[in-house]
Design a protein around this nucleic acid. Sequence first.
DNA 1: AAGTGCGGGTGTA
DNA 2: TACACCCGCACTT
Length: 448
Amino acid sequence: MLKAADDIMDQEDSTSQSGEMTSWDINDIKLPQDVKQTDWFQEWPDSYVKHIYSSDDKNAQRHLSSWAMRNTNNHNSRILKKSCLGVVVCSNDCSAADGRKIYLRPAICDKARQKQQRKCCPNCSGPLKLISCRGHGGYPVTNFWRHEGPFIFFQSKGAHDHPRPETKLEAEARRSIQKAHTAIAPISPRLKRCREAESLTGEMQNQETLPLFLSNQENYISPCSFNGHLIDKNPQEQIINNCLSLAKNYSFGRSSYLTEHSQDIGSNKYYETCKEIGSREHDSGDLSGPSVCNMYTDYGEPQPWNKNTALERNPCTDKCCNSSALSLADLHCEIVSSQNCMDSSIQHVPNIPPTTKACYHPARPTTGLSGDDFYEGKLHVNYNSSYIPSSFYHLSSEDPYLIMNSTHHHQQPSPLSKGNEWDFEEERKYTNLDYCNNEMFFSLYPLR
DNA sequence: AAGTGCGGGTGTA
DNA sequence: TACACCCGCACTT
């Protein structure tokens, strides 16, 4: 049955994302060698798809997926096989205040997953349950990875029949948040138990429990440096620093503009506004803070469970933008208190509505940020050509991202700018915006 | 602690 | 034979 289904799907899916013929199967003795174009990494591969990634693609190297995939032994050391674990939901089918359901990421480790299912729902404290994936003839969807020369071949079999769990990043982020929160605020044993559950499972994907770490600056009172160096080293500030680090990694680029004008993303208006912001900050002469590059990409096709995807880009044009140059220096933040950091000053930004699909441009160039950086949440630092806060472009509207709500902006001189002057045109040159035109959405949202 | 990859082993169709 | 799945181990994060 599975074989028959696969055969049908293979026939239907004759081309890959980049247009390469996919008349191959992961089990073929010989895979295509004359691949002219590799695919962009797919964060949410679904259905019977095949992709050919460059062996330089870090995400592909690590066989990453935002689905919760566990290793499956297929007794073939040349082909790595992974199967989907599904999604963890609340047995009570509870909803958050905003109506959204709880979709937690199953722990990959068997032991951790068992432990996870003994915990309670972070929303209603009800029991959690694991919805197994049965999208491949009643069995879990399987992903196959095979490294062949300069390429990494990927094949997915089956269509996920369950909602998307939170991403690994989100799960990790919330674990950290929860640890911080737990450390800051003493809690009741019951609440503690639930928070432990949240730490294990990641919290629900809703606006109540995925907080924004950095709030309006008006609320801040005590400063801390934030480029890996804390001014104060007391535990509370350590926690705050962690909190901010997460925000740094996950939230940059979620500017208020982006949030408020998501419908403009990808438009000339968006581009011009971003440019204007850059110019305004330059004019202000405030070059002490970081510059943040917002790059919105959304090349994914609507998914059954969520209509937006991230990290799905076209590689053919990406190279033209991969030398983006921006600087990110110290992030100076001010914090009212640890509690405010975690609670009152925390803000959620609504999901970017489906209107962002308006910027779906399969053949358009995007950023030079690799998906790898998204997963790692680290910076691209290449003083030859780039210095990029790299997690910024993960702007999948599905995810309850953390957004930096910044009303004051700093700007750090680009290593490639002339002296201390902000030269957007120069920046644009280095970032190949002329090539990318307005496909690369570029904004500067320094933080104070 | 959890994630990841590998590989031995078993059960089923 | 192919596939799913369990388990333990080693290594990484």
